[in-house]
Design a protein around this nucleic acid. Sequence first.
DNA 1: AATAAGTCGTGAGCAATTTCACAATATTAT
DNA 2: ATAATATTGTGAAATTGCTCACGACTTATT
Lengths: 210, 210
Amino acid sequence: MSKIPQATAKRLPLYYRFLNNLNHQGKKRVSSKELSEAVKVDSATIRRDFSYFGALGKKGYGYNVEYLLGFFRKTLDQDELTDVALIGVGNLGTAFLHYNFLKNNNIQIKMAFDADEEKVGTKIGEVPVYHINDMEEKMTGVKVAILTIPASEADGITNRLVDQGITGILNFTPARITVPGHIRVHHIDLAVELQALVYFLKHYPLTKED
Amino acid sequence: MSKIPQATAKRLPLYYRFLNNLNHQGKKRVSSKELSEAVKVDSATIRRDFSYFGALGKKGYGYNVEYLLGFFRKTLDQDELTDVALIGVGNLGTAFLHYNFLKNNNIQIKMAFDADEEKVGTKIGEVPVYHINDMEEKMTGVKVAILTIPASEADGITNRLVDQGITGILNFTPARITVPGHIRVHHIDLAVELQALVYFLKHYPLTKED
DNA sequence: AATAAGTCGTGAGCAATTTCACAATATTAT
DNA sequence: ATAATATTGTGAAATTGCTCACGACTTATT
């Protein structure tokens, strides 16, 4: 279906955002070296990444910002809007709701769910909060969910999402949820990230570069 | 210094947490296959990961949970406490402050900083909030920081942290901060993670297994 | 005791990713 | 025009990580 390496695919949204920044700053051209300094990715890696999409740059010149941006807009389906539901309106969930994804993105958090009656019926950052009991009813058509609930709730909610027909879950709970093979789950484990950083600091001390 | 592959090192905190769970459940032994199902990592990968630390298991038996846990406690320096400062007490920062790292971890968020006078002087989840102006003064001895501030503040605060003598930063802002080569920065970009998930869903549809 | 079943640790191969390094080409300066 | 400088795109090599598959050993069963 797609020949783009996964490692490359993960960097695309990052490139896209920085190109957008450059464009807003009025910059007309950019070299892989400049972009490398901005996004902290090796310049050869950037050139390689771009090359999977064809020859987007010009030798001796670099890349035309506007052209590149337009290309990525199409490639990343920035025109096509993806609706997302957020489950769990705690602090982490609220942080997501306040993030204005629509500004530079193709993603819209359309609705949120929580069990707290005080939150149900309110809007947070334009996003309506419904009761978790109404999840299946309200979520028709929404295929992606962000899970920002307590770990103890993870399995139960996951099963309900699976039954409802979800295709992708961004899981922020420390639980490693189990789903059928056709559903994609990305785990982001904040505690693990912090522990990994500390481990690296102790065991892989940096001396000069990188 | 260490021969442990970075990919392995990143999985260690995850293994540690699940072993802790098993231990609390009273489980005495565990096989790489069982652990694999729990943490969603291939069992051969788990055995390979463990093997970097020597022969920790027994053929035909599996791993002794208590022994393995004790081993990792030492390896991951779970006995040695690492103090961390959190900069930016917004929703995301607050989520971190409520996370009880001390429970299973070697990490303690010791203090938080914010510019909002209403927050200064309060405690959130036992962690005192100080004014951002007092950062250098209060942070003596703290070498790790979590950055949960607006992107526009990232560069300024980063420079102050660098001058103060930081060694590691967990950066949640969308900005890619610039630091001297001896300082380790891990970026977690929530918007990019969500966009990457959506990209994968569209371009790398799953059919049966993983 | 003997057999069957379970499980580790790892050699070897494979796959993915990164990086080097340079020919080709474009731009800029003189 | 010419030379100097900049920068891409990519073959090839290097690095990193993952998985298979199996010998060796342990435990459980009969």
